[in-house]
Structure formats: C-alpha cells, structure tokens
Design a protein around this nucleic acid. Structure first.
Lengths: 133, 133
DNA sequence: TAATATTTGCAACATTGTTGCAATAAATAT
DNA sequence: ATATTTATTGCAACAATGTTGCAAATATTA
C-alpha cells in the first residue's frame, strides 16, 4: 500500500513513507509532537511541509479542538482532494484523551431557516469504547 | 451592563471594558487581529491575558476552525464557567467569511454504540442569512 | 543512464504565545 | 475619604510554532 503517494501524484520519498507509516500505526488522531517522536530522523521543516502536502492531497486531515494542539489522522476513501466530506465525527475521550474518527450510520442534519448549510462538522466529547466500561 | 465583569468576579479595568465593548459591537465571532485593530491602545500581552480570563470566566468562547485563526464570541446566558454547553452551532459563511453562533431549535443527537457522548460541538459551513439571497 | 523536476535541510526570519517582576491601578477595610 | 491589600498592566526576555529563499541531494521521466 505504499502506492498511495504515487496515486496522489507526489514523489515517494523515505521521509514521506515513514510519516505515512506512523499515521497508519495509529487508530486515533495524533499531534505533530507524536509524529516527531516516532520519526528516526526528525526535521521540523520537512515535517511541516509533508503535513501540508498530505492535507492538500487528501491523505490526512486536521482536527482542531479549542485550546489543544492540532491533531491529524489518515483520511478514508470518501476524502477527496477538493473537499473533505466526512461521514464521521471527531470524538475526544475525556478519560484517555485520545481523539478518534468514528463513522456514524445516521449522520444528523440541521435546518436553519434562511441559511443554506453545505457541510457539517461534528465534534463529540465523552468516553470511548475502551474507557466506557 | 458593565456589571458583567463584576458579576464574574474580576476587576473592572478600562482595558477589559474596552475589549468587552468590542465583542458586543459584533454579531459575529472575531479573531484577535480584529480586536487589536479596534483597541485604542493595544498591548499584546494584556490582550492575551484578557482573552484567557474572559474564556475562563465564561464571558467569551473560542471557535477553532481548521487552518484558520481562532475566533472569539460573547457567550450567552447558558454558558457557565465550568462547561461551555451551547445549544448553538458555529456557522461559517463561505461567501462573507464571517463566523456566527446560531441558535438551533432542535439540537441533534448522535448515538454511537459502546461510546458515551457527553457533549456535541457542531460547525456548519454554507451561506448565511445575508449571503443566501 | 542522462536530463529534468521535485524534495530536503540549512540559515534566517516572522508570528504567536508565555513568564518573572516592578510599577500601577482597582477593590476592600478602616 | 483614605490607607491597606489585592489584582492588573506592561516591559524585557524567552519559548514555541510556522515560513521562505536557496543550494545540494534525491526522485522521476525521457
């Protein structure tokens, strides 16, 4: 599955492969500081640029939660380069602090008179599967 | 209504009153750069500290959208110091770029098997009342 | 394997946010 | 009203985060 970089039409370099592998090793979203720790050879500038291009190409997406470091997670198939339409929500566990992308069967819709809603982004807080015992 | 600062048990200083007045003059959420421009005498450090304490005391709340500067808006009555529970969504207009807090009659709920959801935060993108003609 | 295009990493810089501390201003008690 | 206590302000200095130009190195294409 290293083909992903090629399919997104960006050069396949050792650094990019390593970053991609790190994201694939996590089921939850992770911040740059975690990627940094896992990299054999860490270069701040290259990492910023890698993250930037991964987001542009729809390989990963950013999850921002007020007052916290940004987190990043692998995009699933439904992500396109143009618009990141997710049928998932971002779930932050208040116990283990991890952030997950969780697929939702019935994605809610909202009606606002006089407004035209094109996209919804939902963040939930609570207890994840593991912590909700 | 300058009583707000007193009711939140923080000192009522000219700087804080001015910042509060700026937020009250907007119906939409604004970033620090806008507050800065509107202040007669701008001090970066004092502004950071003012914003921080306003958030802690439930006077304003932060709205973060991926890849954008944070925005801030006045809290309404239902905001408590402990937890910011909003029955409103954050709406970003793709035309005028403004961010609004919009009250919703029927706030959606989501069911995730095995998870326990405590709070939902919803961000919508689309056209606001003015731009949706 | 050579030519071209892209990426990497350094130096240098820009922006954003934080902390200790003395001077100042606000709140409280007298 | 004024003195005392408490909290805030603003400076200097720093820490963290993010960006850009450019030459060397690497990947892709011909």
């Amino acid at each position: 599955m290293t083909e992903l970089l090629k399919s997104k039409k960006i050069s396949e370099t050792p650094f990019r492969k390593e970053v991609l592998a790190i994201f694939r090793n996590y089921t939850n979203a992770i911040p740059l500081s975690t990627v940094e720790k896992e990299l054999k050879e860490y270069n701040r500038i290259t990492l910023y640029r890698t993250i930037k291009i991964f987001i542009e190409k729809g390989i990963i997406h950013e999850i921002t939660i007020s007052g916290e470091e940004s987190n990043y997670a692998i995009c699933h198939e439904e992500c396109s380069t143009a618009a990141h339409h997710h049928q998932h929500i971002h779930f932050k566990c208040s116990s283990c602090k991890k952030i997950f992308c969780v697929e939702v069967d019935q994605f809610p819709s909202i009606i606002l008179p006089n407004y035209k809603i094109k996209q919804l982004e939902i963040q939930a807080t609570g207890l994840c599967q593991k912590c909700n015992v």
